[in-house]
Simulated assay, not measured.
Amino acid sequence: MLLKGDWIARHENCAIIGPTGIGKSWLACAIGRIRCLAGTPCRRLSARKRSAA
């Protein structure tokens, strides 16, 4: 479901949460890469950067 990108077309966000070291950043980068290769522009923001914005 995440890789298909329907949630992007609906202008929804994706929050990946969990404890340290389980691969949240890796998963976010993998999803972003797949969507970029499909022609969908994307960006990834950490919670720390979002709270400062």
Rank of each mutant, 00 (worst) to 15 (best):
M1I: 00
W26E: 13
I17Y: 11
H11T: 08
T40I: 15
I31L: 05
S51Q: 11
G5H: 03
I8E: 01
L27D: 01
K4C: 02
A28G: 06
S46P: 01
G32P: 00
K49Y: 06
A52W: 11
T20L: 10
G18S: 08
G18P: 07
E12N: 11
R43V: 04
L2W: 00
G23S: 10
G21M: 06
G32F: 04
C29T: 09
R44H: 10
R10F: 04
R48I: 09
A38I: 04
A47W: 15
D6F: 05
A15C: 11
C14N: 08
C14Y: 10
S46T: 15
R48E: 14
S25Q: 13
C36S: 15
P41Y: 01
R50V: 14
G32N: 08
R10Y: 07
T20C: 10
L27W: 01
T40D: 07
R48V: 06
A15F: 07
L3Q: 01
K24M: 00
C42Y: 03
C29H: 15
C42H: 08
G32W: 01
S51I: 10
I31A: 03
L2K: 00
R43M: 05
I17A: 14
I17S: 13
K4H: 03
M1C: 03
K49E: 15
A47R: 12
R33V: 01
C14T: 07
I22L: 10
L45P: 07
L45E: 14
I17W: 11
I16T: 05
G32S: 15
A47E: 05
A9Y: 03
L2D: 03
I34K: 04
I17K: 07
I34H: 07
L45K: 13
S46F: 05
R50H: 11
D6Y: 05
